[in-house]
């Protein structure tokens, strides 16, 4: 028991949770209007799209890859789904299926390129991101779609929880289940930890990569759908540049770029931490112009703290030179 407690105390998630609680307590005292259920739901709703994208990126990062194209995939599949719904109408089940399907297909392209070209995921996904976004803007001429079906835009909440938040919770829960309770999840960790060992253990690396990038794409498709639901329009350029926000949140949650590390809990804490900081500072009347510096500082400190606590600093580094 004691061992479990100390290992818990040392984990990134535990430290992050303490920080989140401390900041929540601070804002609860200092910021009027912060500790209300309505504000909490607002705060979470604003980050739901980011959270769904983060679930996909987390899986890719654990597998030792990276997906810069997730926001572009979200934008493209969002537009495609909206076109389908406007032309042929449909229902929620169909919309979800289409969004996940388009996203998965676009995401799987990344895996095929990475596997066939033996190129680094970061380069391939930057190339596909550039291609997807610019083709989208070019083909749509940047025109937004407003005439979404009425059943799609009506605001639903489940037991007081807005639909986007419920959706994000479901997606994150499913991702946690995939990573922790399914043998596929163990293979994903294995691939990230040591690709060669995973291959020799009998993993189908190519198939696994198609699944991983397809999963990230499917999550991006769902995120795009939720974004369209929230703002009641589909603007081709709405998601441009969001990919690095997602990466920042996931990294803050403790995922590493070398693979094999990362949890859904940590990712959720990373997202909540950033959301709470912005929300609390706004309520305290702090200028929103300061958010960037605060976020950047937080990420750098978190990276430095993780590095120091893992004993990774190079011993020779300090006295050399």
């Amino acid at each position: 028991m004691r061992e479990r407690l100390t290992s818990l105390g040392r984990s990134h998630e535990a430290r992050l949770a303490v920080i989140v609680l401390a900041i929540a307590a601070f804002f609860a005292v200092e910021a009027p209007g912060f500790p209300t259920l309505a504000n909490l739901m607002d705060l979470l709703e604003g980050r739901a799209v980011l959270a769904i994208l983060a679930a996909g990126l987390l899986v890719v990062l654990i597998a030792g890859g990276i997906d810069i194209s997730c926001a572009a995939v979200a934008a493209v599949s969002q537009y495609l789904v909206a076109l389908c719904l406007i032309r042929w109408t449909g229902n929620w089940a169909l919309a979800l299926l289409l969004a996940a399907g388009f996203g998965a297909a676009l995401g799987a392209v990344n895996a095929l390129l990475i596997h066939a070209l033996k190129a680094p995921p970061v380069i391939v996904t930057i190339a596909t991101m550039t291609f997807y976004f610019s083709m989208l803007i070019f083909l749509t001429k940047g025109v937004s779609l407003y005439d979404l079906p009425d059943w799609f835009t009506v605001k639903v909440s489940i037991l007081g929880v807005p639909l986007p938040v419920a959706m994000a919770a479901a997606v994150l829960g499913a991702t946690a289940f995939l990573l922790r309770r399914v043998s596929l999840g163990r293979q994903i960790f294995g691939l990230g930890g040591n690709p060669e060992a995973a291959r020799r253990m009998g993993c189908n690396v190519a198939g696994l990569q198609v699944f991983i990038y397809g999963f990230s794409g499917a999550m991006a498709g769902l995120a795009g759908l939720v974004q369209a639901y929230r703002v009641e329009e589909v603007a081709p350029s709405a998601l441009i540049g969001r990919e690095l926000d997602v990466l920042a949140a996931v990294v803050l949650g403790g995922a590493s770029l070398t693979g094999g590390r990362g949890t859904v809990g940590g990712t959720v804490l990373g997202i909540v931490l950033l959301a709470m900081l912005h929300n609390g500072l706004t309520l305290m009347g702090v200028s929103s112009y300061l958010f960037g510096s605060v976020t950047g500082l937080l990420i750098l400190l978190s990276l430095a703290a993780t590095s120091v606590s893992q004993g990774r600093p190079q011993k020779g580094g300090r006295h050399a030179g």
Partner: peptide, 23 residues
């Protein structure tokens, strides 16, 4: 020295430096 992955480091400094400029 801290041996953090360059993508993560420079993502952090990008956000921080942009934040300073905007602030």
């Amino acid at each position: 020295v801290l041996r953090v992955h360059p993508i993560l480091v420079t993502l952090g400094t990008m956000i921080l430096v942009n934040g300073i400029s905007i602030a």
